[in-house]
Amino acid sequence: MFDLVSRLSQYNNLMWSGSLETLYMVAMSLFFAIVLGIPLGVLTTITRSGHILPNKYLNFILDGIINIGRSIPFIILMVAVIPFTRMVVGTSIGTNAAVVPLSLAAIPFMGRVTDNAILEVDNGVIESAQSMGASPSQLVFKVLLPESLPAIILGLTLTAISLVSYSAMAGAIGGGGLGDIAIRYGYQRFQLLIMLETIVILVVMVQVIQRIGNLIADSFDHR
């Protein structure tokens, strides 16, 4: 047992920096998912027929963007957007480069999650705010978003966890992070222990993210 720990401990630095890289990639793409994915979801919902700003054409386009983004397998998306990644960050290798395809996957994902969350807001509540004279922007910021906040936070948690696993895939094309370590050390050099350790770290990471997400969502949930 001691032997095992000491053999693994020589990779502590590597594991630590790999974990940080993974967290960095997840955090950065989560940031873009929040900044772009949530508005995408909100616009999709409110332009649906019968919602607060119905617009058939805009809704068709936005819903299409979400569906297309969600239907491309991540491993293919990653390769397909390499030219775009080069254009944005100047290289297609490394954690910064990985953030581009990760964000492109996370934005439509978060868009759909937000769309679903906002659709759950009771129509009667929206109507009551309309009966008070609320404008569409007041409806979004004072009714739809606050009322669906717990669901949106759980959706963000779901997105974050998907990003952890996507980021491991990004390791396959030189994206860095724990996935990269698992492939280079565990797979290519047959170091089974390294492979296992990265899996354990990933499992712990996912557990912690889910716990934190649940706690935050609960704290906003007064239903």
Binding site: G124, F220, R223
Partner: peptide
Amino acid sequence: IGMIFQHFNLLSSR
């Protein structure tokens, strides 16, 4: 024009 509803329609987050 105030309005009250059968199912109250209060904001659960407030």
